[in-house]
Design a protein around this nucleic acid. Structure first.
Length: 283
DNA sequence: AAGGTCAACCTGTGTC
DNA sequence: GACACAGGTTGACCTT
């Protein structure tokens, strides 16, 4: 999170408004909604989507959060453990889900068909008799698919859902729970990356906008020096007032003048205040 | 061998 | 105190 925090902590935040939250924000499960707890996960990014209001042109592209790239599940390469599923489910051991005798590797043939190739791992066979405390379990394609579907429905599980899923998949509830925890973490990581990219783009865009405004400012300054001063002198003194925010002279009218030299034109509303223009014109 | 992926684990925190 | 979760880490396995 370091990068993102860094970005957030820069002055950039001053220019950020909030956008609508992404459509595909993960849903809180009913339990969380009811309790109102753990909202961090789905709400944490709600204020992260900046809106650019610095300049007149809203040219930035919108990022489609609904198309958040899904986490690669690598399901085509998972090792089939289904032969051990029943054993796993019925086991009471904390490491019951590991098959020590052999692993079954699914390999993709040229036609895309998957065949299960039993592969005896030398490492595993070395530890055949002694159950290692931590062996790598790969969920089957089917298990992953069901878990994914379930995750799309709700990013968190209540105890009953967890139990049902575990039963359906021949996994221990703890495994289902862990899978969901890891899945949420992966989703959040992806979202963070997306947000980071978006902030980068916003930052670049604001920099460009700033450059453009600076250039515009220079042009206006040169115009002011050649034209504005004589123009002031022709105005009756009673029609001139001071702009309260930047203490610049403005005409006392309604401020809706379209005269390009009218300094009392409506003040642009910038998130970032004072704007470079106001700062420099005031100097 | 290096680096990536991911299930499993550990720890701290918030909620009830 | 039990429980669920986030965040970080570990270690097995896989790919390049």
């Amino acid at each position: 999170m370091g990068d993102l925090e860094d970005v957030r902590n820069t002055g950039l935040a001053l220019a950020l408004g909030s956008h609508e939250k992404p459509e595909n924000h993960l849903q809180l499960d009913h339990q969380e909604k009811k309790k109102g707890k753990k909202e961090k996960f789905s709400l944490k990014y709600d204020n992260l989507f900046p809106s650019l209001t610095l300049g007149p042109s809203e040219v930035l592209e919108t990022t489609t959060y609904g198309q958040l790239p899904d986490t690669k599940m690598d399901v085509g390469k998972v090792c089939g453990e289904s032969v051990d599923l029943q054993k796993q489910a019925s086991s009471v051991s904390g490491v019951s889900s590991f098959s020590n005798s052999s692993s079954i590797k699914k390999e993709r043939e040229s036609g895309g068909e998957e065949v299960e190739v039993e592969r005896v791992s030398s490492r595993v066979s070395d530890e055949d008799e002694e159950a290692s405390p931590r062996k790598k379990l790969r969920l089957t394609k089917e298990q992953s698919a069901v878990l994914e579907d379930s995750f799309k429905e709700h990013a968190t599980l209540n105890p009953k859902q967890k139990k049902d899923l575990a039963q359906q998949l021949n996994l221990r509830p703890r495994q289902v729970e862990v899978w969901f925890q890891n899945r949420r973490a992966r989703t959040k990581l992806k979202q963070t990356e997306v947000d980071c990219e978006l902030l980068k783009k916003r930052c670049e865009s604001l920099t460009e906008e700033n450059k453009r405004l600076q250039k515009e400012l220079q042009e206006l300054k040169s115009l002011k020096s050649t034209i504005a001063a004589p123009f002031y002198m022709q105005l009756p003194a009673a029609t001139l007032t001071l702009c309260p925010s930047c203490e610049r002279v403005s005409s006392a009218g309604d401020g809706s003048s379209t005269n390009p030299f009218s300094i009392g034109a409506p003040k642009p509303q910038y998130f970032y205040n004072p704007s470079p223009i106001h700062q420099q014109l005031a100097s």
